[in-house]
Design a protein around this nucleic acid. Structure first.
Lengths: 161, 161
DNA sequence: GAAATGCGGACAGAATCGGTCGTATACTGA
DNA sequence: TCAGTATACGACCGATTCTGTCCGCATTTC
């Protein structure tokens, strides 16, 4: 019963990517433990355990996590948190993203015969990817100040190729 | 009958936003005409005319276009192409976008109680918005080189708030 | 008045997303 | 050895969203 329909929002991360980032961050915040199960992490955030499990499995396939079955098993970061970028996580879960429907990646432009828009917008893509690559899981874990400013924590891109 | 299902891709513009950008670009490329109908533009690109019409109506409501009914009516840019940014177009069609499911915009975090991820990622948002604001319709219309480089055409962001 | 055009709501089909279930597999520890 | 815990993975379903169409109405020109 919304009067205004607030906003669908474009360029939005999927919930799965959100969950994945949250889970990685959680792992980064608990380096003392050898492994945390999917259920542990899911309970910590109140997100569906089975869904998170699938996400963590995907991240394991991508080499961002190491998994270990059996009792006291679970997941652990495959590398140190500083060496895992938000880009890798998102890319692993949501696949390669490009801001236009068709980029010149695989097969040129299937539909829309004149993709004139896309070439200039491809640079936007590079920018977004650059920013996401510059943010590490460690950055996410550090910025824990509830309402703080925490500027200058994440090294941002310098867009001069 | 795809064997691989290439990639859903996240952070993707909707087709409507694509169409809108293409239409604005087309209008920018034909400044001599007083107005172009939705059907004219749709035919030029081979996109559904009625769908494009609704998109152009939305852009008109947002003040990016001027419309004129009746014979020889149609749409024209409300401002010069240099003064209309890709951001405005996308924002008008797809609504405000934010990279995370819940930003601290309207009501904080409905679901996921601990939105720890989001604050650092909000800066990514600003970056994306900045890039899109720095690209004008004029930029899109100029970069017509079929396979050219055209570097340095679009002024990119300097991320130092 | 007729034709062309924009305006806007309703609606349908398709695709995608979020989430669940069931089963198989692997490891641990008693 | 065996039971319990945990990952691995495919199938499936409901809800939402996106794309696109249809219809009637308003506005302008000829």
């Amino acid at each position: 019963m919304r009067t205004e329909e607030v906003a669908y929002s474009m360029l939005k991360l999927s919930k799965k990517a959100d969950y994945g980032l949250m889970a990685l961050k959680y792992l980064a915040e608990h380096p003392e433990t050898t492994a945390l199960s999917a259920k542990d992490i899911a309970d910590a955030y109140g997100i569906p355990a089975q869904l998170l499990a699938k996400i963590l499995q995907q991240l394991t396939r991508s080499g961002l996590l190491k998994s270990h079955a059996g009792m006291n098993g679970g997941y652990a970061l495959a590398r140190e948190a500083r060496a895992i970028s938000a880009y890798e996580v998102i890319h692993s879960i949501d696949g390669p993203f490009f801001i236009t429907s068709c980029t010149k990646g695989s097969k040129g432009c299937d539909l829309t015969p004149s993709c004139t828009i896309k070439e200039p917008l491809a640079r936007v893509n590079e920018t977004i990817a650059g920013v996401l690559k510059s943010i590490s899981i460690q950055d996410l874990a550090e910025q824990e100040h509830p309402a703080g400013q925490a500027r200058e924590a994440s090294p941002l891109v310098s867009l001069t190729p």
